[in-house]
């Protein structure tokens, strides 16, 4: 455990365990018989509150599947997943939908925003769906943090790719979810815009005590995290605390080396 995250943990409010999400013995398989593919193989993982966790691995390693299962977007074959105190593997679709709406924030790689809604409407959308009123002070803080105050009435088509992702980040933060999941949130951005978005994510962990899980294949993006989980063939094979881009890149190269050998 790094010192930084230890400090963060100590200031994090919330559950006694300090675990925002966890997976126990999670297996996810697609298909049956000979075509059966195991995407996740008995994965155990804890996501710590107030931490920025990155999930990495070569393509096909199951990193996206792990995130989707943790976020309640996908069901597991066996095993258990908890978000906060809630066991989600037994929830029905309606309960899962409510859970996502109230406890989880999402940032996808692309197509994060509804084209018919303007920036601020997109930001408050999850709360509007829930019929909740946004906390105006918090909303103002989030909006100013991501630097969108003068773009709120713009529609997605009028925003740059970086700005669109920042709106997505703001949306994820606005409802103060227990945990935010990012699926390659900077995958479609140029390096400068990507750095901006990652900076916001980092700051939201530092300053707003947010919990973030991000899937990425970019070692540089992973270096913004407190902790990096490495997946290969559906298992967590390694983890790294306080990573640097170079260290992550080295670790990833070892996968490639293993593959080619």
């Amino acid at each position: 455990m790094s010192t930084a995250s230890a400090i963060l943990r100590s200031v994090t409010p919330g559950g006694p365990s300090g675990i925002a999400a966890s997976a126990r013995e999670v297996t996810k398989a697609y298909g049956v018989g000979e075509t059966r593919v195991t995407a996740l193989n008995r994965v155990d993982v804890d996501i710590h509150r107030g931490q920025f966790t990155a999930i990495m691995g070569p393509s096909g390693s199951g990193k996206s599947t792990l995130m989707h299962c943790l976020a309640g977007l996908d069901t597991v074959s066996t095993g258990h997943i908890r978000i906060g105190d809630t066991e989600i593997t037994d929830l029905n679709d309606k309960q899962l939908t409510q859970l996502r709406r109230d406890k989880i924030g999402f940032i996808f790689q692309a197509f994060n925003l509804l084209p018919t809604l303007n920036a601020i409407e997109n930001i408050t959308l999850p709360m509007d769906i829930a019929g909740r009123k946004a906390d105006q002070a918090w909303l103002d803080q989030v909006v100013s943090t991501v630097g969108l105050a003068d773009r709120l009435k713009h529609r997605p088509a009028q925003l740059s790719g970086g700005q669109q992702q920042r709106v997505a980040v703001a949306r994820a933060l606005a409802s103060r979810p227990e945990i935010i999941f990012g699926d390659e949130p900077t995958g479609n951005l140029d390096s400068r815009s990507g750095a901006e978005v990652l900076d916001f994510l980092r700051r939201s962990v530092n300053e707003l005590q947010q919990t973030i899980v991000m899937v990425t294949h970019d070692p540089n993006a992973a270096s913004y995290a407190d902790r990096v989980l490495f997946l290969a063939d559906g298992r967590i094979v390694d983890e790294m605390h306080n990573p640097t881009a170079d260290a992550v890149l080295d670790r990833m190269r070892r996968f490639d080396g293993k593959r080619t050998s």
């Binding site: 939908t97 996502r100 999402f106 925003l113 509804l114 084209p115 769906i129 829930a130």
Partner: peptide, 14 residues
Amino acid sequence: KREIGLLRALGLDR
């Protein structure tokens, strides 16, 4: 389709 998927992910139920 994608929009609807997004809405579902963000918590709009069926």
